[in-house]
């Protein structure tokens, strides 16, 4: 009730708007289509993971939301405003991929500078602690190790105590310990009700942190669900063998989502490879050159897109 009383009328529309939203966003770079019509809404207080292979369009999606690039078609909004709007950005923090922090500033000076851009920044010591940089506060930025640079990028993203936080591949290049610290800090921010968008190509990371996972592939959203939903889809195996069975016989086996033939080889993607194999070996004792591997993320989701298009067709 207190919170509602604290709202002034002018604040209402902004308060009601989603922290971040893409609407039919298309982004082309010349002939390359990086985003092919994406709808995405980040809900207040959720940790959303954008999952997908390299080049899927995750970073482009974030760039549109940060105002680093403009959609060719469609819209990008932060708190109901244009991403370049400075008032909207004062509520946003971002950790970009690949910025090389150098120069002759010290860690604490750089954090202080970025903190000063925000109306209610975290105390310096708190930012240093969350990022695990207490021991490096006085070091020149140029002398930091790769992992420490990554932590500093995280520190600069959170120093303004933003309501909305973008983390683009935050743990790339981090060792296990650094990753653990960052995950803990991200969980802490989530518990305080921050909205967080994280991109990653590790399912493990998305699973460990996210409330919701959106899978992007070739610039499109191909799955959107809880980590449990997504894991079920991804936990598929690829069976590769030479068999005399035809597609009609295989497709009816339990849990088979995809069949591909090239030459005499047959590739099968299935949720329960044991059951499929047991049945196949019974039907075709001559089956040979058998290989079972984890389906790559892309393959797992290819079957998913085929499922959805099959449903639409039906």
């Amino acid at each position: 009730m207190n919170a509602i009383a604290a709202l002034s009328l002018a604040d209402l529309p902004a308060a009601a708007a989603a922290p971040a939203r893409l609407e039919g966003a298309v982004k082309r770079y010349g002939a390359v289509t990086a985003l092919d019509g994406i709808d995405l809404e980040v809900r207040r207080g959720e940790l959303l993971a954008l999952l997908g292979p390299n080049g899927a369009g995750k970073t482009t999606a974030i760039s549109l939301l940060l105002g680093l690039a403009w959609p060719t078609r469609g819209r990008a909004e932060i708190f109901g405003r244009a991403p370049r709007d400075i008032a909207a950005r004062r509520r946003t923090g971002a950790m970009l991929q690949g910025a090389q922090l150098g120069g002759h500033a010290r860690v604490e000076e750089m954090i202080a500078l970025y903190s000063g851009y925000y109306p209610d920044p975290l105390p310096l010591t708190e930012t240093l602690r969350l990022a695990g940089l207490e021991d490096a506060a006085k070091r020149p930025v140029a002398k930091l190790s790769g992992g420490q640079q990554q932590r500093l990028r995280f520190a600069l993203a959170i120093c303004g105590d933003p309501e909305l936080l973008f983390l683009d591949e935050p743990t790339a290049g981090m060792d296990v310990e650094a990753r653990r610290i960052l995950w803990a800090a991200v969980r802490g921010l989530k518990q305080q009700g921050r909205s967080i968008v994280l991109t990653t190509h590790y399912l493990e990371e998305a699973d460990a942190l996210a409330d919701r996972i959106v899978v992007i592939h070739h610039g499109r959203v191909i799955a959107d669900g809880s980590p449990a939903d997504i894991k079920r889809t991804v936990a598929q195996r690829r069976i590769r063998c030479v068999t005399s069975l035809n597609e009609g016989q295989i497709v009816n086996l339990p849990g088979v989502t995809r069949i591909e033939r090239s030459g005499d080889r047959t590739d099968i993607v299935a949720a329960h490879p044991e059951a499929v194999l047991r049945e196949m070996l019974r039907l075709d004792p001559e089956l040979h050159d058998l290989e079972v591997t984890g389906a790559r993320l892309e393959e797992a989701f290819l079957s998913l897109t085929q499922d959805s298009s099959a449903k639409e067709g039906a």
């Binding site: 970009l96 690949g98 090389q100 970025y114 851009y117 303004g160």
Partner: peptide, 14 residues
């Protein structure tokens, strides 16, 4: 080139 400018553009720096 180092991406510092992009970081500053993303941070709410005028």
């Amino acid at each position: 080139e180092r991406g510092i400018l992009a970081m500053k553009r993303v941070a709410p720096m005028p």
